[in-house]
Amino acid sequence: MKTYTNTGNKDTRSGFGAGLTELGQTNDKVVALCADLIGSLKMDDFKKNHPERFFQVGIAEANMIGMAAGLTIGGKIPFTGTFANFSTGRVYDQIRQSVAYSDKNVKICASHAGLTLGEDGATHQILEDIGLMKMLPGMTVINTCDYNQTKAATIAIAEHKGPVYLRFGRPSVPNFTPEDQKFEIGKALQLTEGTDVTIMATGHLVWEALEAAKALLEKGISAEVIDIHTIKPLDDDAILKSVKKTGCVVTAEEHNYLGGLGESVARVLSLNHPAPQEFVATKDTFGESGTPAQLMDKYGLNSASIIEAAQKVIERKK
């Protein structure tokens, strides 16, 4: 089984910041907007290097989304930055009408997604944002797994014409994907080959899936791990190819099982190749305060939960 090395823990939001810094140098159409969270979103360098292309909007997310839509008229490529909760739920109608329905080339970049925001608690820990965004016609939805992938995705979405939701997080997590990768929107990454079960993970759960695959191998179970960084458009072919081989799937995400990656995978399977599926996700609940690790353990979003789900779903094949 192919193994991956953690080259050192890093936060995915810093990958976004690094990607934005690079875009600032390479693409003068790129502009950035932030709602009073420059440090949290790691947008400091872009602001320092390109003050004329940076818009501090204050604590006014609705205005930020509308302004971003307006900036596209004149050929700019706006990147908005705030926490995932304020990037989606707070401004859903603004995104729906001024961005998605109006087909504006806005990149909604959202940090602090999910439980791993930690101690701030449920008011800030959105677990519904993937669902909200994937339901919007024309919206591309990306949830990256580590620093390198987030940086690559940030750079890639500038080249994509159309609205994008890019979701990443706050904590330092293993950085294991290649530094020089080219990010392909909509192309799932097969990380390991296996025959007994497919584990499809997104975001912070990808590393957990790799850890689970290692442990499963020791139990004699061969797991195929696929990184679904793009939840919409979904890589149907990769999903079907793998599940046709393994016969079952575990989906893993830091999101509610209603509306998340798991439901998208279930749709593809039910239409084309019905197969047993287990969901590693939050179960229609809000989060709470705690350290990221405590919360991921309490809500069952870790390698142990993936291992358990894999064993269960393999049993269901019989």
Binding site: A62, G66, A69, G70, I73, Q94, Q97, S98, Y101, S102
Partner: peptide, 18 residues
């Protein structure tokens, strides 16, 4: 830009002005 859901046009206009 689409409009109908009220209150969004001025933000869009500001973005276009910038």
């Amino acid at each position: 830009v689409a409009s109908g859901s009220l209150g969004q046009g001025m933000s869009v206009a500001i973005g276009a002005a910038q």
